[in-house]
Amino acid sequence: MKVLIAMDSFKGSISSIEGSKAISAGIKEVYPEAQIVTLPLADGGEGTVEALIRATDGNVVEKEVMGPLKEKVTAVYGILGDGKTAIIETAAACGLPLVPSNQRNPLLTTTYGVGELIADAIDKGCREFVIGLGGSATNDAGIGMLQALGFRFYNKHNEEVGIDGQALKDIYKMELEHVNAKLKECTFRIACDVKNPLYGPMGAAYIFGPQKGATPEMVKQLDEGLKHFADIVQDALGVDINQIEGAGAAGGLGAAFSGFLNGQLQSGIDLVLEIIDMEKSMEGADFVITGEGKLDGQTSMGKAPLGVAQLAQKQGIPVIALAGGITEETAALNELGITSYFSIMNTPMSLEEAMEPKVTYTNLRTTATQLFRLLQAVQAVVKV
């Protein structure tokens, strides 16, 4: 028997790697000789570097960069097994968890550190980039990142503007003479699952600004800055960065990658599955096991378990999904490739207890054991 385990993390509880180990151990209790292939997953957000490094036998790189509050932080990114592809989660350099709750103000935060990570990867020979957007504390439309890569933005007095969200409104012109020349050799694939434009009622400031600490007054100021910046870019480069689908992701980093670096924005899970060559790993599998912390309506909108299920469906492979929590909306997944789904909870407990890593590990292992004991019993009946 061959079983492919392709789990996302149970966020806040257990990593995709540890979750896969638990399920594998549960299966081995019943089928000691089973061939088990594990491919930890992520959908372009948290855990993407870890998942892709493991899947491609790559390396982790640590780099001290400028954090969102303009202080030094140690950020981590990965270089895949091919030695030429860098995988960067932007949140590693400008993520919301890096900013204490009482200091959150997207007028003052910057993406400069993201640009430093890209420059470091270029120096190490990388020319292919996979960028995971999401979880940023910023709303600077990526001007911090761009300045770290050599782009220059000036005010009306021919002085360089700042590197944060409040600097957007001061930009009068841009200059490209000092841009890192090696960027022309680079390609950027961007994992982005939001569709928001750069500015306006559905833009970066109004939709995501409040969760980053923006007051209504700040939101208005940020949105005006984003619009002003888009107008400057339109005049200088002839590119309408506002209308790019996903431009508002990560405080406007989507617009910066697409408009300045020719980045291609695509579904996070589709990008990850392509890189790890999931379809090839599925060949000959009898079952696929996937899952995440909670299966709900969001899962059916493109998260990791659905991406796995759709690939398995093409090959006619049954898919079992495991989760801590399951909602009524999850039933829709049965029509989208997931054969059956199960909660790993087996006794009443608080959310805090359920999310304890040891508890989650045990529950995953126990559930896997019981499912495959049932399968073993059914197979015995069929043989008779």
Score class of each variant (00 low, 15 high):
residue 217 E to S: 13
residue 236 A to L: 04
residue 248 G to E: 01
residue 251 G to T: 08
residue 240 D to T: 04
residue 236 A to G: 04
residue 238 G to T: 02
residue 249 A to S: 09
residue 227 K to V: 05
residue 229 F to K: 01
residue 226 L to H: 15
residue 214 A to I: 00
residue 244 I to W: 05
residue 233 V to I: 13
residue 232 I to L: 12
residue 225 G to S: 07
residue 221 Q to V: 14
residue 244 I to H: 03
residue 211 Q to P: 09
residue 226 L to G: 11
residue 213 G to D: 03
residue 240 D to H: 05
residue 212 K to Q: 08
residue 229 F to R: 04
residue 234 Q to C: 13
residue 246 G to H: 12
residue 236 A to W: 08
residue 226 L to C: 14
residue 215 T to K: 08
residue 245 E to V: 13
residue 241 I to K: 04
residue 245 E to D: 10
residue 242 N to F: 05
residue 219 V to F: 08
residue 211 Q to Y: 01
residue 249 A to N: 02
residue 216 P to I: 06
residue 221 Q to G: 07
residue 245 E to S: 13
residue 235 D to A: 14
residue 248 G to A: 04
residue 216 P to M: 12
residue 224 E to G: 09
residue 229 F to Y: 13
residue 211 Q to N: 02
residue 237 L to G: 04
residue 246 G to T: 11
residue 211 Q to R: 05
residue 229 F to G: 04
residue 245 E to W: 02
residue 229 F to H: 01
residue 240 D to E: 06
residue 233 V to A: 00
residue 241 I to G: 03
residue 233 V to F: 06
residue 250 A to F: 07
residue 221 Q to F: 13
residue 234 Q to D: 13
residue 242 N to A: 01
residue 219 V to C: 11
residue 242 N to K: 09
residue 226 L to A: 08
residue 231 D to L: 14
residue 220 K to A: 11
residue 241 I to S: 06
residue 229 F to N: 00
residue 242 N to T: 05
residue 218 M to I: 13
residue 217 E to P: 12
residue 211 Q to E: 01
residue 217 E to L: 13
residue 214 A to K: 00
residue 242 N to C: 04
residue 222 L to T: 04
residue 221 Q to M: 15
residue 251 G to V: 06
residue 247 A to W: 02
residue 223 D to W: 03
residue 217 E to I: 07
residue 249 A to W: 01
residue 243 Q to V: 12
residue 251 G to W: 06
residue 221 Q to P: 13
residue 213 G to T: 06
residue 246 G to W: 10
residue 240 D to A: 01
residue 250 A to G: 10
residue 246 G to Y: 07
residue 248 G to Q: 09
residue 218 M to N: 14
residue 234 Q to E: 15
residue 243 Q to D: 15
residue 247 A to K: 11
residue 239 V to P: 07
residue 234 Q to R: 15
residue 227 K to N: 14
residue 219 V to M: 10
residue 243 Q to N: 15
residue 243 Q to E: 15
residue 229 F to I: 00
residue 248 G to T: 02
residue 230 A to T: 03
residue 216 P to E: 05
residue 222 L to S: 00
residue 219 V to L: 12
residue 227 K to A: 08
residue 240 D to R: 03
residue 215 T to V: 07
residue 218 M to W: 06
residue 217 E to T: 13
residue 226 L to S: 08
residue 247 A to P: 14
residue 217 E to Q: 14
residue 221 Q to R: 15
residue 227 K to S: 08
residue 244 I to V: 09
residue 239 V to C: 02
residue 211 Q to L: 01
residue 229 F to Q: 01
residue 222 L to H: 02
residue 245 E to C: 10
residue 223 D to M: 06
residue 228 H to L: 01
residue 240 D to L: 03
residue 242 N to I: 02
residue 243 Q to M: 11
residue 227 K to W: 07
residue 224 E to W: 09
residue 218 M to L: 10
residue 248 G to W: 03
